[in-house]
């Protein structure tokens, strides 16, 4: 998902529970989790729980921040004032989501400056989806519908995450997401009911965004690491494949209402399972995008770095101003 890089190969060792953790405390901790108790910032927690959460919440935050970039380019190109106001509000929300999440990560003992540095240096991951370009206005529709739709699937169970500050941030985020998905779907619907050219644009956007959206849930359960510990600690409540299935089941009927085709020849209703079965995902593409070789990885990081550098003088001036006022107050 927004934290899909957590369970790709190569990072397994970091999640292993340390053997020098006091077994009695570990047992008490697990008992609290099992009893659906929430863990709060100052409570004792295993180091691996803390580390997993810092990585998960910060990857999630970075995704919200970088996620502003593909849509941001369309703010000045929106086709009407109504669309522009909506998109502006949505992009602003994504920034807010990033900030709620950074604040939640900071309760675990990492500073905002360190988190920012991890993103800007390229050490931290963010969701693969934001390394694809938004080429036409229909992409803004497809992003709201599919990408925010996938985000909602993942984020609703996170509202019950065992870590209190993360769960509370997710409650706020989820309240705001449904507007994002609906405005995207409305754009798609308008295009699909417009001229043949507009409908073709919507189909083209669905063709390009469908598979990357499917990858948002991360590697298949058979290849994903960490899932067991995360499930036992109730950081995660459903597996990648379970969430992906829910997504397909929800999206296919919505595509039918739009009158456009999901680009998957293997897509079919399965009477036996009462779910849609679907084709094979190109996991090599997924690995390449996560490894930094997607269509826009370099552009995204460059843009974030430039924006951060451009704001340096503002941060400096604000701190200098605050310091000057403080000094004056003391003198008076």
């Amino acid at each position: 998902m927004y934290t899909q890089a957590l369970n790709t190969s190569g990072s397994a060792s970091r999640l292993e529970v340390r053997s020098d953790e006091d077994p009695e405390r570990m047992a008490r901790f697990q008992a609290r989790i099992d009893a659906e108790d929430r863990i709060e910032a100052n409570d004792w927690m295993p180091e691996a729980y803390r580390r997993t959460l810092i990585r998960q919440i910060s990857q999630h935050a970075h995704s919200e921040i970088v996620g502003q970039l593909p849509e941001g380019r369309w703010l000045t190109r929106a086709p009407s004032l109504r669309r522009k106001a909506a998109l502006l509000a949505k992009v602003q929300d994504e920034c807010g989501h990033g900030l709620y999440l950074y604040a939640a990560a900071e309760t675990l003992g990492i500073s905002r400056e360190d988190l920012t540095e991890q993103l800007l240096s390229g050490r931290a991951k963010y969701s693969s989806i934001f390394n694809y370009p938004a080429l036409t206005w229909a992409d803004i529709g497809a992003i709201g519908w599919l990408v925010d739709g996938a985000a909602i699937m993942n984020q609703i169970p996170l509202c019950r995450c065992s870590y209190g500050p993360y769960a509370r941030a997710m409650v706020r985020v989820c309240k705001e997401e449904s507007f994002h998905q609906r405005q995207g779907y409305e754009i798609m619907l308008t295009l699909c009911r417009g001229t043949p050219e507009q409908k073709a644009m919507a189909q083209d956007a669905l063709n390009r965004w469908w598979w990357p959206a499917m990858m948002m849930f991360g590697p298949p359960d058979s290849q994903s690491q960490h899932s067991d510990t995360s499930m036992a600690w109730k950081i995660k409540r459903f597996t990648n494949d379970e969430l992906r299935q829910r997504f397909v089941d929800a999206m296919v009927p919505q595509a039918r209402i739009l009158g456009i085709e999901v680009p998957d020849l293997d897509l079919a209703w399965d009477e036996a399972t009462q779910h849609f079965s679907f084709g094979v995902i190109d996991w090599e593409e997924f690995r390449q995008v996560l490894a930094g070789n997607g269509p826009c990885n370099r552009e995204r990081l460059t843009d974030r770095n430039e924006a951060h550098a451009d704001g340096a003088w503002v941060r400096e001036a604000a701190l200098a101003h605050a310091e000057k006022r403080r000094a004056r107050k003391i003198a008076a």
Binding site: G96, A103, R112, A318, L319, H321, A322, R326
Partner: peptide, 18 residues
């Protein structure tokens, strides 16, 4: 929740936005 800001006035502004 929380926000980062250089002084109280800017913290209020940021809190309002966030």
């Amino acid at each position: 929740g929380s926000v980062h800001a250089a002084d109280a006035e800017m913290a209020l502004q940021a809190a309002r936005d966030v």
